[in-house]
Every structure is written in structure tokens, then in C-alpha cells.
Design a protein around this nucleic acid. Structure first.
Lengths: 154, 154
DNA sequence: AGCTTTAATAGTAATTTTTACTATCTAGTA
DNA sequence: TACTAGATAGTAAAAATTACTATTAAAGCT
């Protein structure tokens, strides 16, 4: 899950990130490091612009283009993933162990959940015959309890 | 599934569509009828712009705004659905019985598949505790056989 | 540590995708 | 057939993403 990580785990993942960049001949720039770190520390699957706003607090010259470009680079190298949504803005997360997403239609918050049993179930023959499946994700849209109880309108 | 429908089925669905519009106090305009029909007949989950291009052949004055606006209206009324993707363009389909999606990362084709067993499986407690789930979808990204065999690059 | 090379970044500008505005038109109804 | 509210066309604007170019900085080599 990309949710609340303890500091040691973050440090470990940043070190893995550095190694991955070296292996991929990606220059480990300050910007890339901070973009990746910010995404690791984000529990909310931010959009590029959200991420940019947060990063500006640390690096006031960080350009939006760099965020978009870097996210695309990271994605190409499998370091981060785009979240499947029906929204117009793309949302991102640091790639981690298999998990799925709950999206609140009201507040647009995205949270992770795990479902080992599903992950281990074989795909139906239709899918196998279609081609090579690289990535299976469940996305559930609904309304989270917070929005239900605060009476936000769906 | 929103795939190849026989003519009778299309006629039936268009008639259901007309009724749904009446019930929802949506004026049944020529444009709305044709947009819905085009989507019904499309097996490829088209984007708004793709749909617009196809509709221009029938109705040369059809504006792109109308397509977007109408799709949004239909979606609000549950007549059509947006497909969950990681692409930048939204893709649409006429709402039909529960199904899931296979998306080819190469050709971006989207096809439906069914998985009754999954549909009937209870969601894990984590999800139930989160709130109200309205909609659960599996989206599988991969490479379809056509692209594998024609050697399109992933 | 300094030099060199090559890729990455900042600061725009440009594209792409989606939504908004307004005068005109039309479906539904009397 | 005429009325009225809502829908559309044509365009403009906004939102989201990508491209361009001069400058900067990482990584490798002395």
C-alpha cells in the first residue's frame, strides 16, 4: 500500500529508488529525488498539479513541466503508477505491492485496499485468450463514510 | 457487453433510451438520439472526439460541445458510463450488464469481458467499512494478441 | 577537485482535452 | 400553430498536458 509509511520504510524505498535510477541510467537529480520522495510520502494519490504545489514549498523554482515530465519518466521505468480513474486529471502513486483502489465520487479521495484472494484467483479463459495481461486492478467507486456523515452531496 | 449487438437488440435499447429520456424530462433531440445510437453501435468504447468525428458523417453540423455536454448528461442519468483508464482522453460506453475491461497498452483498444464469479463474490471487510460501494470494475492492462503478432511495440 | 559530455531543468509557449457562453433553434405541450 | 423551456451551433475560454530552448547540473574521466 502507498499509505502511511514509517520513516525507515521511506528511507529504504528512497535508497531503492536511487539504485533503480542508477541501473536505468537516469541522472539522480535533486528534483527527481524530491518528486519521488513527495509521492512516497503522499497518502492521497496526488495529481501532477497537486504534487507540484507541494513541491514548490520545498523547491520554489520547481517547474510544472518537470513534474509532468519526471512522472512520465518514472512511469516508463515502473517506479510509479498512474491510477485508473474516470477523472480528467491523472493521479499517481509510488509503485508498491499489489493493491486496489477505492475512490469516493464526492471528495475524490483515493485509498488503497488489498484483496489477496482476488489477486491469487486465476483469470477467466476469455482474458487469457485475449493476450498478455500485465496488470489487473479493481477500482471501486462509491461514497466514503466521511462524505456520507458530513452530508457532502454525491 | 457493449460489443456487437444484433439489430433487434439495438432497436430495443433505443426504445428503452427514449423511455428513459421521457422519464428524466430530457428532451429527445435528434442529436441526443444519434449520439446514443452511435455509442450503442460502437464496439470500441470511443472517446468524445472519436464519436464526434463519426457523427459528423451523419449530422455535419453536430458540434463537439454537444457531444461532450450530451455524454455528461447521459452519464448523470446513468445511461452511459465512462471507462476507467489511465489515458488522458475519456472513453465511453452505453451502460449495460455488469462487465469488466481489457485494455491493450499498444493499440488502446478496449474490450469487455464478463466474470460472474467475481461479480458475485462479497467484497472484503475493508471495503465495506469504507463506505458505500456503487460500482466495482476490474481493468486489465496488457497487450492483445493482434498487437503481439503484428509486432506493434508496447 | 576540475573538465567534459550529455541529459535534465526552468520558464515559457503550444497542444490537447474539456467546459462555458450566447444567440438561435426545436421538442414538448397547450 | 404558437409558446416556452431547454438544447444546440459556433465560438471562446479554461483546464490539463506536452513541447521548445537556453541554461544548468550529474556522472564519468582525468
Amino acid at each position: 500500500m502507498s499509505t502511511t509509511e514509517n520513516p525507515e520504510s521511506i528511507i529504504k524505498k528512497l535508497s531503492e529508488f536511487s539504485n533503480a535510477c542508477r541501473k536505468a541510467y537516469l541522472k539522480l537529480t535533486h528534483q527527481r529525488y524530491e518528486i519521488y520522495r513527495e509521492l512516497l510520502e503522499s497518502v492521497d494519490h496526488p495529481a501532477a498539479e497537486t504534487l507540484h504545489k507541494r513541491l514548490l514549498l520545498k523547491i520554489p523554482t520547481m517547474s510544472l513541466d518537470t513534474v509532468y515530465r519526471t512522472l512520465a519518466t518514472f512511469e516508463r521505468h515502473g517506479l510509479i503508477s498512474r491510477v485508473q480513474t474516470v477523472e480528467s486529471q491523472a493521479r499517481f502513486e509510488a509503485t508498491s505491492s499489489q493493491h486496489h483502489h477505492l475512490i469516493c465520487s464526492v471528495c475524490k479521495n483515493i485509498i488503497d485496499f488489498q484483496w489477496k484472494h482476488f489477486d491469487e484467483t486465476a483469470l477467466p479463459p476469455e482474458v487469457v485468450e485475449w493476450g498478455i495481461a500485465n496488470d489487473k486492478h479493481i477500482v471501486i467507486y462509491g461514497v466514503c463514510n466521511k462524505c456520507l456523515y458530513t452530508g457532502n452531496n454525491p
